[in-house]
Design a protein around this nucleic acid. Structure first.
Lengths: 115, 115
DNA sequence: TCTTGACCTGGAGCGCGCTCCAGGTCCGAG
DNA sequence: CTCGGACCTGGAGCGCGCTCCAGGTCAAGA
């Protein structure tokens, strides 16, 4: 299986080396396999997961939220627990969208006022 | 004209006293009129403006963005400049909504997987 | 008048999410 | 074998957005 060096993984994901190491320390990704010499080797799967994490970070989830997310999906939890957690997170995102829409409406009002 | 004490303004807006003072220092609101003794008196107009600021904060705009927003709306700028600024801000909010939607789609996928 | 509590200011402190740095290790090219 | 660049670790530093604190002032009620 082909693997990526840290630099290549950073390049592919758009996440800095420091941040990749930080995410790993925080348990958001990995643990990443190492070579005999101790260097990290990222798999395609790791890259995919980093993409998910990035997506959620961009959506405004905190590091703690993501840690919990990872824990829920990995550890032994019943489907009910997982679904409950996921729905709750989804609700929070919906509220963020609502807040954004309110702000956009205000902007639209100002824009049409000045247009 | 009826005015509000700091405590009443905090209560009405849901913003803490410290944060109200902080926003004023940062130029996001006010300057707030003072009594002879130096205490702040918030007008209804101030309260309304605090509501706007809160709305934008909840939408994820930073303090710097809001300072710029206030400056653009107050200072002498042509309608074109204002509209350009407002549209740019609106675009940024749309991108945030898009990021949220991407994250929600992932959640929906997981939810249907576990349901 | 005295007390009490809301308010004032300037500045320190804090949690988050990175980001940077020092000092050392690994390893491929020459 | 040597050199240099990519990588390692642990820990310090930073910008943001508050939040808290000390030490003092103001003003309404007893």
């Amino acid at each position: 299986m082909t693997t990526l060096t840290p630099a290549a993984a950073a390049d592919r994901t758009g996440v800095s080396l420091d941040t990749l190491r930080y995410y790993e320390r925080e348990g958001l990704i990995g643990p990443i396999r190492r070579t005999a010499g101790g260097r990290r080797e990222y798999t395609e799967n790791d890259v995919f997961w980093i993409g998910l994490v990035t997506c959620f970070r961009e959506a405004g989830l905190g590091i703690g939220d993501l840690r919990e997310f990872v824990a829920i999906l990995r550890a032994e939890h019943s489907p009910q627990e997982r679904v409950a957690f996921l729905r709750e997170r989804r609700g929070a995102l919906e509220q963020r969208v609502a807040a954004l829409c309110r702000a956009m409406e205000i902007l639209d009002g100002k824009i049409s006022y000045y247009s």
